[in-house]
């Protein structure tokens, strides 16, 4: 354990490189996932129809899929013989970010939808009665439910930073290129080299605590 702390404190280049890479992959995947995820969540909350309920159930289910299943589907598209093989994303940072995007996006949509569904129905009627244009209605809704939207961002980041299936399948755990905290932990533990694995585990633990504290803080602020 002492050696694990030492690795972090003395600024071991490889350890901090892995941490930085993990954070940047997860950051970009989360940011990209907001672009379709938030409008999808808002759309599901606005549209009162049977189709909406089916779509919401589907999104909820996808957001709970094991990461390796998402990784497998994306792998099928990105592999050399797959329809997107020409992009050369497999075993590259772009592949990991794309896979993590598909992990994060349903969660963003799902949490946004759940938060918006709890909004007072009089809010929607207030938007309607003033004939609020669509784009302004969208921004007013996000402002009104900003705690739910921020929660979706934080939770999605927490999910992708801690996943191993997508990073391993689509990134290949290549040293200095696609090795993330979780894939490095898996490799080091398998080799019996626990110092770095524990140091990275501690960082992940800190991130998990930060995510939970933030989400709980947002939830209590929203009440």
């Amino acid at each position: 354990m002492a050696q694990a702390f030492e690795l972090l404190l003395r600024g071991d280049a490889e350890t901090w490189g892995i941490i930085g890479r993990s954070l940047s992959f997860s950051f970009f995947a989360t940011i990209f996932s907001l672009i379709p995820g938030i409008p999808l969540g808002v759309f599901m909350a606005w549209k009162a129809s049977k189709g909406r309920r089916i779509l919401a159930s589907l999104i909820h289910a996808i957001s709970a899929l094991p990461t390796v299943v998402i990784g497998l589907f994306v792998y099928a598209f990105l592999s050399r013989s797959g329809p997107l093989g020409f992009l050369g994303f497999l075993y590259a940072p772009a592949g990991v970010i794309l896979g993590q995007f598909f992990l994060a996006m349903p969660l963003v949509a799902s949490v946004t939808y759940t938060g918006l569904a709890k909004l007072d129905p009089r809010f929607k009627e207030t938007l309607e009665t003033f004939g609020t244009p669509l784009l302004f209605k969208f921004s007013a809704t996000l402002r009104e439910a900003k705690m739910a939207v921020l929660s979706s961002v934080v939770l999605s980041f927490g999910r992708v930073i801690g996943e191993v299936g997508v990073s391993m399948m689509l990134g290949g755990n290549i040293r200095g290129l696609t090795r993330t905290m979780t894939t490095a932990i898996a490799l080091d533990a398998a080799k019996g080299e626990f110092e770095r694995a524990i140091s990275l585990g501690l960082v992940l633990l800190l991130i998990a605590v930060a995510v939970n504290v933030t989400v709980n803080g947002l939830a209590s602020h929203g009440r």
Binding site: D120, R122, F123, E125, T126, A140, R143, E144
Partner: peptide, 8 residues
């Protein structure tokens, strides 16, 4: 509304 919704 009877009990109006005031925006945050």
């Amino acid at each position: 509304h009877q009990h109006p919704y005031v925006l945050a």
